[in-house]
Design a protein around this nucleic acid. Structure first.
Lengths: 195, 195
DNA sequence: GATATCACTTAACCTAGGTTAATTCCTTTC
DNA sequence: GAAAGGAATTAACCTAGGTTAAGTGATATC
């Protein structure tokens, strides 16, 4: 894909969020990656101080417990901004990795230049605020879902929240998103079929 | 407590976050409340479009499931900024209420004026970004703790995260924070005593 | 075309935590 | 000081989901 097409897709995404972002962002150093299915954009433990834009494709945020179990924290479909806010902001190790579930195209910007840009351009800063708020509100929903709902309900919610995804990605990954084992998920699906 | 003392405590808090906030914030309309132990600052379902500053005291964020069960999403000790980001930003109903666990003193600012202030004062906006980032990162930790750790581990983590709190607040509230019943928490504490 | 390999299912068994209820111990309140 | 309500404990029982393992298709590899 052409470089200009890529930056255009970012521009389109920004505009859609309802802000007149100064086009000067497009002068930032850009590195387009193409990430193959299964590959990681970065791993848990890396210092992922880049701001990523997933232009096309599908990824999941995945973290591994001390006992070696995988947990999927989120699925994200392009176009969307992705990355570890924590790692960008604090320069600490990311507490999750980002794995492509489909071949994906990602643009990356050094957070430092992004941050510098923000300090000079209020529109830019406001855009970032919007972004934080959005993800933030999503997180709030998920947190309470985990406390309040059963695994079965969480599976049904998943199907609604990510329509189509349930037939295109592996069940083990759905299970790890819901917070149960693949075996348990299989049982739940079995039970739902009977209804 | 004197009005000036209160605004000073807000000023101090802001400064501590490392930003030169324009003092003009202090000209915003301020309403100091004093919230008694057990009372709610606002309830789940309210449109809580205020920006609150908990000057002194202790509160919990509590939401109730469809079945009527209470869930504590967080404890916050003053001085700290509190409120429902979602409700402020989207003007939708808050998905939790804020209840005082100790007699508390709270300042409230209409979000609209706060927002207006931000649009004119970049320092202000940057402060808000810092705030969002901080809460955001905290949420990330909690989310993964819920997936990865057992209730016992979550209890131990709670004791570390909120030192002293375990002896001053009710166990049912700790249980609802950990995501288990008071009965289960009692069992866990019993078991830990034996070790 | 035979054989690994991997995703998924199914079944048997186990455990953490939920539910209900009885008991004790505190506070209030009169 | 008696009575009543709430908080915590303990015990008996139940259930959702974990664990292990065997079986079934698929797809990949030789």
């Amino acid at each position: 894909m052409e470089q200009t097409q890529l930056t255009n897709s970012l521009q389109t995404y920004f505009n859609r969020l309802g802000h007149d972002i100064d086009l000067s962002i497009l002068t930032l150093p850009v590195e387009p990656h193409s990430v193959s299915k299964g590959d990681y954009l970065f791993q848990q433990g890396d210092i992922a101080s880049n701001f990523y834009f997933l232009s096309t494709g599908l990824v999941r945020y995945v973290s591994v417990s001390d006992e070696g179990k995988e947990f999927t924290q989120s699925f994200v479909k392009g176009p969307s901004v992705i990355g570890s806010t924590k790692s960008m902001v604090t320069k600490l190790k990311a507490s999750f990795g980002i794995q492509a579930l489909e071949d994906s195209i990602v643009l990356s910007y050094p957070w430092a230049s992004f941050y510098e840009q923000m300090r000079h351009d209020k529109n830019f800063l406001e855009f970032y605020v919007k972004l934080l708020e959005r993800i933030f509100i999503g997180k709030e929903e998920r947190e309470s879902a985990f406390m309040k709902h059963s695994a079965e309900r969480r599976y049904l919610d998943f199907c609604v929240a990510f329509p189509g995804l349930k037939d295109t990605i592996q069940q083990q990954q759905i299970a790890s998103y819901i917070g149960i084992t693949p075996v348990a998920l299989s049982r739940i699906r079995q039970k739902l079929k009977l209804c």
